[in-house]
Computed example of a mutant assay.
Amino acid sequence: MANALVVRKGTNLARRLRTQRAAQYVRMSRELQRYSIENQRAAIAAYAATNGLTVVRTYEDQGRSGLRIKGRPGLIELIEDVQSGQADFDQILVYDVSRWGRFQDTDESAYYEFLCKMNGVRVVYCAEIFKNDGSFLSGMAKYMKRGMAAEWSRELGVKVHTGHCRIASLGYRVGAPVGYGLRRMMVDEGEHPKGQLERGQYKALQSDRVRLRHGSAEEAAVIRCIFDQFVNARQSYSEIRRALNDANIANHNGRPWTDGMIPTILGNENYIGKTVYNRTSRRLGERLVKNPAHAWVHGAAAIEPIVDPDIFARAQKLLAERRVEIRKTRC
């Protein structure tokens, strides 16, 4: 009987084995290289080896923002596994507090960690100098780190927005996509064309810029026709839309036109050679808001005009009158 397995009363073998097993959660958005997935894995592996842990699960969010849990399938799956009781580990190894998330409400970050704790799974921040042991000092350190992570995102958002406004004021295109009859051309620092950007494509180098370019001559003719029908023929949005679709002219998405697309064309300053940025904004994933006219950023001489400025000005006056009529009708 010398080799017999002796189990002491009250010993939970499954629990004993589980305490040597851990999962790792890694996340990277578009931040500094030191936060790369590979670097996080290396730091977590070193921590696991030092503490006698075996990493048995990996939950990963590659190229995902840490502002919220939405859009982070890795973290969502992790929380679901923990809450369902399917987790075969009792520790989650994370590089640091910011990789868990840069939640703008620090209570949200604490909430997801609390869900794990309530289900017997502890979150460990491997690169932090404090131990996540539930002590007063640990709680204070986490609170400060969560606030710093959130503030980093807020400061970065302000800096990025300021940079975008400056670039837009120089006549470059900021954002995507563009309207009907327009194209995005990537240029280098010397304004030399590097290629046309298709839908879903973005420039790779920070020093590159995006200029607007005309589409086909046929598209330019359609744009002028829309303005002519609206300003001179005084046709309604529905009449213009119907004429375009009857002529089998597709919109910029290759689909039939709708009434709502017509005023969008008529109000687009790109067609008189200008760019306009910051009409709307969405800060840190909040709701999209319309900005007042004084906050708009105009870039002149960004592209050769397609429509005569006088025709465009007359169209804006008619658009304003149409909006007033619509409001009266609704009232």
Rank of each mutant, 00 (worst) to 15 (best):
A315H: 02
S216P: 04
G190W: 07
A176Y: 10
A23Y: 04
E151K: 08
N268F: 01
V158T: 08
P193E: 05
A49H: 14
N253L: 11
I265G: 01
E80H: 13
M140K: 08
D246A: 15
G267M: 05
A4F: 12
A250R: 14
E108P: 01
I226H: 02
G299V: 02
I76M: 09
Q24T: 10
M140F: 10
V297F: 00
I311L: 15
M261S: 08
A42W: 09
L93Y: 09
D105R: 11
N3Q: 13
V158R: 13
I223F: 00
R241I: 02
L5M: 15
L318D: 05
W100M: 14
A250I: 09
V222Q: 07
G285E: 10
R21V: 00
Y271I: 10
R15S: 14
T106W: 00
L78R: 00
A320D: 14
L182R: 03
R323V: 03
A313K: 12
Y47T: 10
Q91P: 00
G181Y: 00
Q235K: 14
R15D: 15
R15P: 00
L53I: 08
W296C: 02
F227I: 06
T280A: 07
K145Q: 15
A315G: 08
V7I: 15
R154G: 04
H164C: 06
R209D: 08
G74H: 05
V289E: 10
V307M: 04
V94T: 04
L32G: 08
L197E: 03
R21T: 02
I272M: 05
L78P: 06
L288I: 12
V307N: 03
S138E: 02
Y125P: 07
G267W: 07
R209V: 06
M140S: 09
F130A: 10
A295G: 07
P292F: 02
Q40W: 11
M28V: 10
G147Y: 12
E108M: 06
E269N: 09
R64A: 11
E269V: 11
A149G: 07
G195I: 06
A150F: 02
F130Q: 06
E108F: 05
T280E: 07
G163Y: 10
R330Q: 09
I311A: 12
G254C: 02
C331I: 12
G134H: 03
G195A: 06
E286N: 13
Y277W: 15
L115P: 07
I272W: 13
S236A: 12
R279P: 06
H294K: 12
I69Y: 01
I249S: 05
Y111G: 07
R154F: 00
A301K: 13
G66C: 05
Y35D: 12
A2C: 08
L212C: 04
R209H: 11
V276M: 13
E60V: 13
R16V: 14
L318F: 10
V178W: 00
R27F: 00
S98N: 13
A302E: 13
G179P: 06
L137S: 15
